[in-house]
Design a binder for these strands. Structure first.
Lengths: 236, 236
DNA sequence: TGGAGCAAAATTGTTGAACAATCTGCCAAA
DNA sequence: TTTGGCAGATTGTTCAACAATTTTGCTCCA
């Protein structure tokens, strides 16, 4: 799995410009991690990566700094940096955050007709994905919906926080041994959520969201706990 | 104002250890900015600062990366990094965030007796500070209270976000021409907030918080707008 | 066989110097 | 007054080196 000693990057032909190497490299790595090419827990060696990406060790280090700031990557002093590999505690934290900001946005955000239409398009996308059995599309649509919910708050910072949280969620899914159709149960809930928002039933929407998040967390944590115990037995 | 060409830092005698120079330097700079030694908008020259702090330019650069990630500092490509200097739009964003996460924490957080007692101690501190006319202590207590409110959510990430936001608020105050006793009006509101939390009136607490944040934002924005127009008149 | 201890090798942390790219300020020319 | 352009300064990035720390591999001993 290690470091996919990649074909040297072409920094001129890419769609985005050279864009100040360090942040560019951070973007590349973020992308590879999100795409699952770099799996959670794997080590990012400075030497190998700087070679593979064709940048100096110093520049790569700067990129690591920004990724560590986003907690996409974990830095252990004198040991190196590793792709973040969120466990049960991290999942709990994720849901602590979501359980605050999503219902808050639903309750107090500004619900405009355009946003509502976008949301309806997204849930529809989720429904057709479910019918087609496409787990990936379903997950995407699900995340898009909840991102849009937070968007109701109109706050750039909260959006950023939510995006980070959702990125961490994707890592959780990547790290999970078996990938159950985690999302299919929740499509209907999302439909209901959007309906409530359209009807102006803010408090119901918020309460429903909290219930949804509670059960999603429980399911995920349960699954992870099972995975953990299944993986544990080694030397002893 | 510029860069306070400091007496070379002693990295061994400090309370915190050497702690991997880059983050150590970030800590030092963060502290100096918070203390107002480095004023908003002032430029942080790589050469001067690396000299003054006794670290290499590369290491300083890494420190800049982490501070930029916290938006304590603003990085302009090929121009340099500057101490963040939040304006009206940033203040609006700050309050967008606070108006979501503070009432959410008040509504749905876990209110324990210990936290309540802490809060009561803090509001008392604010009251005595007001009576003593100590603006700084009042501001501290005020921020401590609202930090504690977000703490009700039990989420590390939200706490971090709130701390960043409050740090930005301090920058706003630093940058303000005249410092009105902004906080004194709000001490009583805070008392009421804690009373409501103790009484279990969550919704009232949340509603009161939102109202409080609305008027605080209005006052701040008004003040900043006046400052801006007062400073504007230049060439045209 | 199975460690315990220890030296060698590899990796990270940090530095200093160098050079390209970009910006700033200044001075001359139109 | 405006435009053009030329130094000089500053940032962006690389390279090579060395100290500090971790990891690896090996020998030796019970």
């Amino acid at each position: 799995m290690a470091i996919t000693a990649a074909t040297e990057l072409d920094r001129t032909s890419g769609s985005a410009e050279h864009a100040h190497t360090a942040v560019w490299i951070a973007t590349v790595l973020r992308g590879r991690i999100a795409a699952g090419e770099l799996t959670p827990g794997s080590k990012l060696s400075e030497q190998s990566l700087s070679m593979a990406l064709g940048v100096s060790r110093n520049t790569l280090r700067e990129a690591f700094s920004v990724l560590a700031g986003e907690s996409v990557v974990t830095k252990i002093p004198n040991r190196g940096v590793f792709v973040a590999s969120p466990g049960i505690e991290e999942v709990r934290e994720i849901y602590r955050v979501r359980r605050m900001i999503e219902p808050a946005a639903a309750l107090w955000g500004e619900v405009t007709p355009e946003v509502l239409e976008n949301m309806e398009a997204v849930v529809e996308r989720a429904q057709t994905a479910r019918d087609a059995g496409s787990v990936a599309d379903m997950a995407d649509a699900n995340q898009a919906l909840h991102s849009a919910v937070v968007g109701l708050a109109g706050s750039e910072s909260l959006r950023t926080l939510m995006d980070r949280v959702l990125a961490e969620m994707r890592l959780v899914f990547h790290a999970m041994a078996s990938a159950p159709d985690f999302h299919s149960h929740y499509v209907d809930r999302n439909v209901q959520l959007v309906e409530r928002l359209r009807a102006g039933q803010r408090e119901d929407a918020a309460a429903g969201l909290r219930a949804y998040l509670d059960s999603a967390e429980a399911e995920l944590v349960g699954h992870l706990a099972r995975d953990a115990t299944a993986e544990q037995p080694r030397t002893s």
